[in-house]
């Protein structure tokens, strides 16, 4: 049985949205019989993450949360993975990270030298518009949906058994589909959402072996 580790901090608006939306990936993973280690809320901390990785050896790791070019963070921005310190924890794993800019150095270097199988992430900040009035029900937020749905296609495709290259393609296609939809929209929010869709689509990248799959 393939094992999935997913981190879902929820300490601010941004992570609360990522937490809620990545629930859809977990549902898909359950449907495909994966064993799931869901580090949500305060459990998205370095100690728990390292313990799961060492003891359970998940083949697929999905990171939600903040980050930068060299780090991926968890609850209250606790550093989970830091380049030059513990990126070897990602050895032989397929990783998808929404953490901003984490593909730029961390993703690139851990696939080049530290044996991470594949790393899909973003070279720049992941951005999305949302309606704060929907904060208690992020899944009903039509303004946030395009970017978060497109992002989700990576994880959904991977848990279905598709390889990293196909999963990247599925997500890029989703971004394009939403871009097409919003280009024709007369909604006031449309131009703003459109800009973030294009930004995220262009910034998303795949490093490592595109043939990697669970």
């Amino acid at each position: 049985m393939s094992r999935l580790l997913i981190t879902r901090p929820d300490h601010d608006d941004v992570t609360a949205y990522l937490h809620a939306w990545s629930g859809k990936v977990i549902e898909e993973a359950r449907r495909h019989g994966l064993e799931i280690f869901d580090l949500k809320g305060e459990r998205a901390n370095r100690k728990d993450m390292e313990s799961i990785i060492r003891d359970k050896q998940p083949v697929l790791v999905l990171f939600n949360g903040h980050g930068n070019e060299k780090e991926i963070a968890g609850y209250n921005d606790d550093t989970l993975i830091s380049l030059g310190h513990n990126e070897n924890l990602l050895d032989r794993k397929i990783v998808y990270s929404v953490a901003c800019s984490s593909a730029k150095e961390l993703g690139r270097k851990c696939t080049d030298s530290a044996n991470c199988s594949a790393f899909i992430g973003y070279e720049e900040d992941f951005a999305f518009y949302y309606d704060p009035n929907r904060l208690s029900r992020p899944l009903s937020d039509a303004i946030a949906a395009p970017n978060l749905d497109s992002s989700n296609q990576v994880g959904i495709s991977l848990v279905k058994g598709n390889d990293a290259k196909e999963s990247f393609r599925m997500s890029q296609n989703a971004f394009r589909k939403w871009i097409g939809k919003f280009m024709g929209s007369k909604e006031l929010e449309a131009p703003y959402v459109l800009q973030t869709l294009i930004h995220n689509m262009m910034s998303q990248s795949l490093h490592g072996n595109g043939g990697s799959k669970i």
Binding site: D12, D13, V14, Y17, H66, G67, N68, A73, D77, C100, S101, D125, F126, A127, F128, Y129, Y130, D131, P132, N133, I143, A144, L188, E189, P191, Y192, T196
Partner: peptide, 19 residues
């Protein structure tokens, strides 16, 4: 000018910079 025209009820989540 684009931001001035933006609907006031929405926010931008911009990575580590927050909302």
């Amino acid at each position: 000018h684009r931001v001035e025209s933006m609907p006031a009820h929405i926010k931008l989540a911009l990575g580590s910079y927050g909302s």
